[in-house]
Design a protein around this nucleic acid. Structure first.
Lengths: 215, 215
DNA sequence: GGACTTCAGTGACTAGTATCACAGAACCAA
DNA sequence: TTGGTTCTGTGATACTAGTCACTGAAGTCC
């Protein structure tokens, strides 16, 4: 794989200072992951902080019976907050992360990302901001599960999906059901209802979104 | 109110270094809050980091319709992770925190808790550890809402309550229903079932817990 | 084109939870 | 003791979501 240039990283992380960029280039490794590949598994030990350079990752929770639900998506320029937190104590991951599209991630050895907190102000700020952002997104997810019916959760899910990957949602009903921890038939029915309002059009394996706001 | 002594703080936060303790004593204020008082409200601006010295706080989420659910409890020696995160950018709180019993909190001005991250290793570790711990508890709560039936959630709730405040749970069914975002009748029925297994005994306004593990 | 596979749509049924209505028990205050 | 208030228990009913069974439509491979 070609080695990414400083400019590539700078483009995604414009807030980093020069010397930090140099440090990143010098000491971290880049990994290219394929679509569908698991970047992080529940129970796995974490030895690096994960930054996303390109592509899209989904971060989700999985229980012992194989149920799952989506926590949030990570876009280029984001970091996996869990990887930062675990980092500090060499702990196990509590979550799953999977590449939705093919993606490039930067892996920073734990001890360095730890050192950099003190060394680089911009890194420190980035870490704190990441924590906060993920915490907030998690709270939103929690809200929608705790307070909303499945119809609203589906809407929320679709909106989020549109935001990260556009108005053509290339997912089967089955996949959506999985991420919402529901079942295909129920999702099918709800989508059908949404189609009747004119907000979306259903096709095989993809959903065309027109306008979700006016539902 | 009497000014708490270094020893009092040290007892709750034994991991702090001497000079940090001095800084805390010199620059933070202590507030005594009554039972039922709200320490933090959704939408409120946060200008201090909150440490809990004594008593018990519950941290919960509230939506626009007045529904709520419990996120976790804070015990002496804990910090409110949200207050730390908001701190960094002078942001609004996303959560509610209320005193379950009367309590003493230490309020550290945001700019100081920010500075101390770089200045004191022990403070930095404490903050990171707090983030992580709260994140994990939040994930547990999320799991139980997403994957479990109300019966298991109730069990989880009771166990957690026992852990922080003992085997006499002084709550009405109504209050429990509120924290689980359910309704009184349903909670009554589930508790009744639990009583029949011998795990608890029901009284007016309190529940006597015998053994929740064998249910 | 025909066989096969995957995906989507739909009716019938079930389980879990919420809501409504009411009754009785415990506690409190005059 | 009496009346008021809060808390608890319980039946009836409704609604949401999950499950089962089946059908047809779309795409794939030969």
């Amino acid at each position: 794989m070609e080695i990414p240039q400083k400019e590539d990283i700078l483009k995604r992380f414009p807030q980093f200072e020069q010397s930090l960029l140099d440090d990143i280039l010098a000491h971290s490794t880049i990994r290219e992951v394929e679509e569908g590949e698991e970047v992080m598994r529940t129970g796995q030990y974490i030895r690096s902080t994960v930054l996303l350079l390109s592509g899209l990752l989904k971060v989700y929770r999985e229980d012992d019976e194989g149920n799952e639900f989506l926590m949030y998506y990570l876009e280029p320029g984001n970091a996996c907050a869990m990887s930062m937190m675990c980092t500090a104590r060499d702990e196990q991951s509590q979550i799953m992360a999977k590449a939705v599209t093919e993606a490039e991630v930067i892996l920073i050895p734990s001890h360095l990302s730890e050192q950099w907190l003190a060394k680089y102000k911009s890194w420190h700020n980035f870490v704190i901001a990441s924590y906060r952002q993920r915490f907030e997104e998690l709270l939103q997810t929690l809200d929608s599960i705790a307070f909303k019916g499945l119809d609203e959760r589906l809407l929320f899910y679709l909106k989020r999906h549109v935001k990260v990957s556009g108005k053509e949602i290339r997912l089967s009903h089955q996949q959506i059901a999985l991420e919402l921890n529901s079942s295909r038939e129920v999702i099918s029915r709800l989508l059908k209802k949404l189609e009747q309002t004119g907000a979306i059009t259903l096709h095989r394996n993809y959903i065309e979104v027109h306008d979700l706001e006016l539902v």
